[in-house]
Design a protein around this nucleic acid. Structure first.
Lengths: 217, 217
DNA sequence: ATAATTTTGGACACAATTGTCCAATTCGTC
DNA sequence: GACGAATTGGACAATTGTGTCCAAAATTAT
């Protein structure tokens, strides 16, 4: 019973009840992502959370509601992580390629590799068709907020003369696509990608992106 | 009971038994992709195939085996479709951007949008962790064969002086990433993307790819 | 037409799961 | 240490799904 969510949990600085609630949410996120909605049994979640089944029903109601709460929770965390990284976007870089590559590395490491984002993507892919509202929620947070945020930063770089963009929104999607492509393949294995490879991916993506969009003197 | 697999079925030029078998396989592909392995019930598959449950057990054994056969079948079809399109890759184009864009359009339309590929990606994403051999099979056919094939064509273009590549394999992955990025978002909705949008995606991807890799005079 | 093969549909046993109830126990607080 | 609240674990009914069996019906080949 290796607990792959340990990284996310916060120590017991919360009211005791909230602590168990977090344990349940983390366990549920694991199991839902691994097994899908139908395949995830409440017993399995209870077992992984180290909690009795009844406690889950007490705190979170039925399976449907548990699922919704889990997704909402993870969406928040994932979004927060992303925007924390986005704040480090280089606004007036001296060495554009170097600083953008470093930003890409951070983005890959903290926002795309992190369990929250992975769970979310998988859950949306798996259960999106069956939970249309959830799909909408995710859409609002994911493509709806992240891409425009990236696009704004890129547009700013373009305005400052670093890039030549005619469609910042498109450039943002392409930037993210280049960044995530290799990871997508690796990730489905569940394999934890070594840092060196992540650096390489960030460098590859950034290099190609700049070959396409960097201003030429 | 709209049959979204009609496009794939072949008329009754087959031995009768094979015909029902195909119906089962198509229905199973639908249901597995929609509901995941755990959520897919044999009864639902039988109902959609217009066949009795017993017939499924007669022809294909238990659920596990049914799933494996479905994936193998779809993998074959998907792979065949891809390589059929790949044969139209422009080897000595007069207008590189134009011809590569047209190729991209074909690839998007016939190989990435098509139901086979979509089912496969979703099933692998959903159930890959629980069926390691299937994951390996897919990997062999997908990244294992398709990417090198694309890379070879790109390398050929580079050798002929059209492109400047130092890593054809990487360029192939990036080319595919640029192509698929917008589609991935649209597709999860199950929405059928209009042809005009597909053309646009192909043009956007190709344009950026060539901005990065086309030889400059 | 007749024989062989498949298909059908319904019944069945078995297992897993959901969600509820409740008495005993543990935990945090005062 | 004693009180109140939360947690536990086990039992429970109801539902759903798997996989098997079998006799009747339909389909296909001879």
């Amino acid at each position: 019973m290796k607990n792959s969510s340990a990284e996310i949990e916060q120590a017991s600085t919360w009211p005791p009840a909230q602590n168990k609630r977090q344990a349940i949410l983390n366990a549920a996120a694991d199991i839902f992502a691994e097994q899908g909605y139908a395949g995830a049994s409440i017993d399995a979640i209870a077992a992984r959370a180290g909690v009795s089944r009844q406690t889950i029903y007490n705190q979170l109601g039925d399976k449907d509601n548990l699922f919704k709460v889990v997704v909402a929770e993870i969406t928040d965390r994932s979004s927060a992580g992303f925007f924390r990284v986005l704040d480090t976007f280089p606004a007036a870089p001296e060495d554009l390629e170097k600083e953008l590559t470093e930003f890409s590395t951070r983005l890959l490491r903290k926002a795309i590799c992190d369990p929250n984002g992975r769970w979310l993507r998988k859950l949306v892919e798996t259960e999106g068709a069956r939970f249309p509202e959830l799909f909408e929620t995710w859409r609002e947070y994911g493509p709806g907020k992240k891409y425009p945020a990236i696009a704004a930063r890129l547009a700013q770089l373009a305005h400052a003369g670093y890039l030549e963009l005619d469609d910042p929104a498109l450039a943002a999607r392409q930037f993210m696509a280049l960044l995530a492509t290799d990871l997508r393949i690796e990730q489905q294995l569940g394999r934890r990608t070594p840092d060196a490879e992540i650096d390489q991916m960030a460098a590859n993506a950034t290099r190609t992106f700049l070959r396409a969009f960097a201003s030429r003197p």
